[in-house]
């Protein structure tokens, strides 16, 4: 069975099992009655039928009882949901950014990562946004899900109760690599998390000692590698491996031309992704990225190093 690793898990599972038990009782009862009738009143056993037109008492009984039961089900679903929508005041806010086809998590101190790390037992509020189409942020083990909608801020919150690593999935169809828009959430004990989090402050996005290493981090963080592989694997966009210095056939305003991939070309492609389209990939839209000149410089350094 799927583990229940958040404070919502038992709420959702209890509501589910309540409905499941009621359903099984009804299902078994109705199917058994049906089979019994088919056997008992088979024409070989019962030649004389009784034309009963109906029974008001029965109609009332089987209207009222299901009504009461479903109201109970509604209530169960409702209390769980109310809990999901009311975020505790002390929740730690983490920004979740979705894009085709990757996740970025931004912590209050500015630290960014592509996988989520959270402390056990503390409320976490995920403030969700999308850069392109609709995605959906889903952690099955926590029983939480919320769409990431462009132009609209959404949120969810959870309190992880169990340690371990759990899947994060995208559940709103978003294109070719929808099934690979995966990440994970690592639940650590509070002290271990505190130590980890204190270290994250030292992370420098740009201007570090080894510029190409920074660039490598950036292409992961900004989601570039969801489409551009770094090891030559074919994906929906040209691979980064051996890209620098290569000659590509591109379309500019519909006109075909040859271009050598150099610093100027890369810089322009990041700033104006729609200007030049590489032949064979002309229908894949690349999202506009908000990168500083330092960051672009780091990415160029990285591309130079990935031969």
């Amino acid at each position: 069975m799927l583990s229940g690793a958040s404070s919502f898990a038992s709420l959702v599972d209890d509501a589910f099992f309540f409905i499941l038990v009621v359903s099984i009782i009804f299902f078994v009862g109705i199917v058994a009655t049906m089979i019994y009738f088919v056997v008992r009143y088979h024409h070989t056993r019962n030649k004389k039928v009784k034309n009963i037109e109906g029974n008001l008492t029965l109609e009332i009984v089987w209207t009222v009882i299901p009504t009461l039961l479903v109201m109970g089900m509604f209530y169960y679903g409702f209390i769980g949901y109310s809990d999901m929508r009311n975020v505790p005041d002390d929740a730690m806010k983490i920004k979740v950014t979705a894009r085709k086809w990757s996740w970025t998590f931004t912590y209050p101190n500015g630290y960014q990562a592509t996988a989520l790390t959270v402390p056990q037992g503390k409320a976490i509020k995920a403030e969700i946004e999308s850069e392109d189409v609709i995605h959906s942020f889903y952690i099955p083990a926590f029983r939480v899900k919320q769409d990431a909608v462009p132009g609209r801020d959404t949120y969810l919150w959870f309190r992880a109760t169990e340690m371990g690593k759990f899947d994060i999935l995208c559940t709103e169809f978003c294109g070719d690599r929808h099934a690979y828009m995966l990440s994970s959430v690592d639940v650590l004990p509070q002290e271990q998390f505190d130590r980890w989090y204190a270290n994250t402050g030292k992370q420098e996005i740009s201007g570090g000692a080894d510029l190409s290493k920074t660039g490598e981090k950036l292409v992961t963080l900004k989601g570039c590698i969801a489409c551009h592989s770094i090891d030559g694997t074919p994906r929906v966009s040209p691979t980064f491996k051996g890209l620098y210095g290569k000659t590509e056939t591109i379309y500019t305003d519909g006109k075909e031309r040859q271009v050598r991939v150099d610093e100027a070309y890369i810089s322009k492609s990041i700033k104006e992704p729609a200007a030049d389209k590489v032949k064979g990939f002309e229908n894949i839209p690349m999202p506009q990225q908000d990168l500083s000149d330092d960051e672009i410089e780091a990415i160029i350094a990285y591309l130079k190093s990935n031969k």
């Binding site: 919502f8 509501a15 589910f16 409905i19 499941l20 359903s23 089900m73 679903g77 769980g80 949901y81």
Partner: peptide, 14 residues
């Protein structure tokens, strides 16, 4: 009925 119950549907939606 399971889908109609909101908290359950949050989990099983899509």
């Amino acid at each position: 009925l399971m889908n109609a119950a909101i908290s359950v549907d949050v989990h099983v939606h899509d």
